[in-house]
Design a protein around this nucleic acid. Structure first.
Length: 420
DNA sequence: TCTGGGGTCCTAGGACCC
DNA sequence: TCTGGGGTCCTAGGACCC
């Protein structure tokens, strides 16, 4: 099951005055996150900039994304599905896989009728429409759900699989991206049916595991399980930010990185996680990335423990005079904070102090808003305006430097700016 | 489609070990 | 000191997804 234009539909569900109108979400990002079908009909696409949106659809109503509301709709949607089957995979905020096997008996109806009931219930209770595909495997069900949108219900029985794969280009398949499509095309395979029709030996010779699995699924052999357990934790946490125009200002670029690092750590601490590895990367104007992965002495989610490594890593990847458009950090090798052990050589007193500092920072943030206290190294973020000739002073906020800056530096403690 | 942000998993090859 | 054969772990990078 896949909700139709989910974010936009949620907006229309709670704001009746938006119904029937071209609605776009993602105002805060500057690009289209979701577009209602009214907007899509006028040529609005995901990822479009608003300049282009205004051209094709001047009457579009653009609203900021409201993730809390969408999550609420999502939760309620999954609750409805659970009434039908406990074997539910929450695949994304607006998509789910449900294993209906065996349920014809208890509901006294066919799988198709069951799906139809699900669809009606969601639409009646939540006021949004969904599309459903019913078939023998997840890949086939996904094809079905996309086959007829919005408000579609497509059943693909084993005998009719070929009818749905025939006209379907391989690049439309779930799990096959531009690269594999190009490769398959070189092998003379253009449609999903051509891929499914190859024999097993051919598939094993030319393709790696993920694509062998897709081949099985296309042929009605289910190999992807419906994963019932909800994702409890993260493998990695990343924060990236694009800035325009691209910058050659080293301190500005590092400040961006620093800010991302702070944000990633905030998220890690919120989930009580500590990272064993830190990845830094910069994206050049031409969209090529350069990055470095650093092993940390101690799993941590405290920026002040990471800055030294980050500075060194940054020094290694940063090239003078090259314009960058984005910085990113990834915290990986995550483990529960409670399982972090001290080594013989850790300065436990210092670490405990640091823990207290960050605990306080997090408390202040929850009371007064994010970044009430932030690291000084993230501050040059606001100095961007130099491209127009002169630097502006730190705007927006009046800031005061914590006294004792040098002493804090000596102690390896973070420097703090306080919003007044 | 000249391109935003946050994720996951797989694979090849090197380092190292017995 | 050189050699064969077999295995594990780690890392960089690729490919995809929403």
């Amino acid at each position: 099951m896949d909700a139709d234009a989910f974010f936009a539909s949620c907006e229309q569900a709670i704001h009746p005055e938006l119904r029937g109108k071209p609605v776009i979400t993602g105002k805060e990002r500057g690009i289209v996150a979701a577009a209602s079908y009214e907007a899509k009909a006028r040529g609005v696409k995901r990822g479009m900039g608003y300049f282009d949106v205004k051209k094709v659809c001047p009457e579009a109503i653009i609203v900021p994304s409201d993730y809390e509301t969408y999550s609420l709709f999502s939760v309620r949607m999954f609750e409805i599905l659970r009434r039908f089957s406990p074997d539910l995979e929450e695949y994304s905020i607006d998509e789910a896989f449900v294993d209906l096997t065996g349920l014809r008996r208890s509901f006294h109806c066919s799988y198709g009728e069951l799906a139809s009931q699900i669809q009606e219930t969601v639409e009646k209770e939540l006021g949004i429409t969904v599309s459903i595909g019913v078939s023998l495997s997840k890949v086939l069900a996904k094809i079905g759900s996309k086959h007829d949108k919005p408000h579609g219900l497509t059943i693909i029985p084993g005998k009719e699989i070929h009818l749905y794969l025939d006209k379907l280009p391989v690049e439309k398949l779930w799990g096959i991206g531009p690269n594999t499509s190009a490769f398959l095309n070189k092998l003379g395979i253009r449609t999903a049916l051509e891929l499914a029709g190859k024999d097993e030996e051919f598939i094993q010779r030319h393709l790696s595991k993920p694509f062998q699995e897709i081949w099985c699924e296309l042929n009605g052999m289910s190999v992807y399980p419906v994963v019932t357990e909800s994702k409890s934790s993260y493998q990695s946490i990343s924060k990236t930010k694009t800035f325009t125009p691209p910058s050659t200002d080293e301190s500005f670029v590092f400040a961006q990185l620093s800010k991302n690092l702070e944000n990633a750590c905030i998220k890690a601490r919120r989930h009580n996680l500590a990272a064993k590895r830190l990845i830094l990367f910069l994206r050049k104007k031409d969209f090529r990335d350069i990055g470095i992965e650093l092993k940390l002495n101690r799993p941590t989610a405290y920026p002040s423990e990471l800055f030294e490594a980050a500075r060194e890593g940054f020094r290694q990847i940063y090239q003078q005079g090259i314009p960058y458009r984005l910085t990113g950090v990834v915290l990986s090798g995550l483990m529960p904070e409670s399982r972090v052990q001290f080594t013989l050589f850790d300065d436990t007193t210092k670490i405990e102090k640091m823990a207290k500092v960050y605990d306080s920072i997090d408390k202040l943030s929850s009371r007064f808003g994010k970044h009430t206290v932030q690291h000084a190294s993230s501050l040059p973020t606001k100095l961007q305006v130099q491209h127009e000739g002169k630097r502006q002073d730190i705007p927006e906020r009046k800031t005061a430097l914590f006294s004792g800056e040098n002493r804090r530096q000596r102690l390896g403690l973070p420097m703090l700016y306080i919003k007044v």
